[in-house]
């Protein structure tokens, strides 16, 4: 394979990975924008999406059922977490962060106990290769990108057109005023956390046929997602989307020449540079 074809392959991989990152980062940003908490267990919700998907697949043998059920289940789990764990300590950001760290430990260890420590794989639901520049490229990866685009568009539509979506944007803009206008803020918070969790899990089940499933996979994705939200600007949905695609491409293209870990270091360097010259992120509001 010549270098040009390799670069095209790297760019494609980067694009797909960027869309998966975007789903997860959007979930994190959505939650941060409203609840003003950094959810350290967000990576574990991504992991749970993939692992629950694996269980559903074992049970039903149907990937499409898993694709629907896993994000739904994790979304419901998110609702429960917000109501049961985070609501009682609302308004104490540090304590909340520590609680989400506790949750991440619980999820990791629960999966380690139930699922085991050995990595598992999920086969792609269909075998269909595209031929690009003389080499085959997995059609499933295109499907992942497509799925993400659909999900992200749906999220945008939801935030613009639906009652709860518009409530979310309202609460995000002005909490007091929303309260005065009679928006049920607690319910909006709960739904936002559930939606954010579901997005992470959707990223997890979509990535499942591409990566190895194990209890530590949340820790693998966490730095990438954090780099994305910092580069994009905390709380900026558009920024997260843009930064996810940028980081996906950066890591995809550099992985042609260096190991994935070194590619991750490039992202870190990129993030540090953004912090030095534009601390509020690419599309973040100036603080």
């Amino acid at each position: 394979m010549d270098i040009f074809a390799q670069l095209v392959l790297g760019a494609l991989n980067g694009l797909v990975w960027g869309f998966i990152l975007a789903l997860i980062a959007l979930g994190l940003t959505l939650v941060f924008g409203l609840l003003e908490i950094i959810n350290i267990s967000h990576g574990e919700l991504y992991m749970l999406g993939a692992v629950l998907g694996w269980y559903v697949l074992q049970f039903t043998g149907n990937f499409w059922v898993a694709l629907i059920l896993a994000p739904l289940a994790v979304g419901v789990l998110g609702l429960v977490i917000e109501r049961g764990v985070l609501r009682p300590i609302e308004g104490k950001p540090i304590i909340t962060i520590i609680a989400t760290f506790g949750l991440s430990l619980i999820f990791q260890q629960a999966v380690l106990t139930g699922f085991g420590g050995a990595p598992q794989r999920i086969p792609a639901p269909f075998e269909w290769d595209l031929t690009i520049l003389g080499f085959g490229y997995s059609g499933y990866r295109f499907f992942v990108a497509l799925c993400s685009i659909v999900a992200i568009s749906a999220l945008w539509g939801f935030l613009r057109r639906f009652k709860y979506g518009m409530w979310m944007r309202a609460v995000r803009q002005d909490r007091e005023m929303s309260l005065a206008l009679g928006i049920p803020i607690s319910r909006v918070y709960m739904l936002t956390f559930g939606l954010g969790s579901g997005l992470a899990a959707l990223g997890g089940i979509l990535a499942a046929p591409i990566v190895a499933l194990e209890f530590r996979m949340g820790l693998d994705i966490l730095p990438a997602v954090f780099i994305v939200v910092i580069i994009g600007g905390l709380g900026s949905l558009e920024g997260s989307l843009l930064a996810a695609l940028l980081i996906g491409e950066l890591e995809g293209l550099t992985s042609v020449f260096v190991t994935p870990t070194t590619a991750r270091i490039f992202s870190l360097v990129f993030m540090s540079a953004v912090l030095l010259f534009r601390p509020e992120g690419l599309l973040g509001r100036r603080r």
Partner: peptide, 15 residues
């Protein structure tokens, strides 16, 4: 196991 009990303790203690 230890990490699990730390996680559980944390979630309970902060509340």
């Amino acid at each position: 196991n230890v990490p699990l009990s730390i996680g559980l303790l944390l979630v309970v203690m902060v509340a």
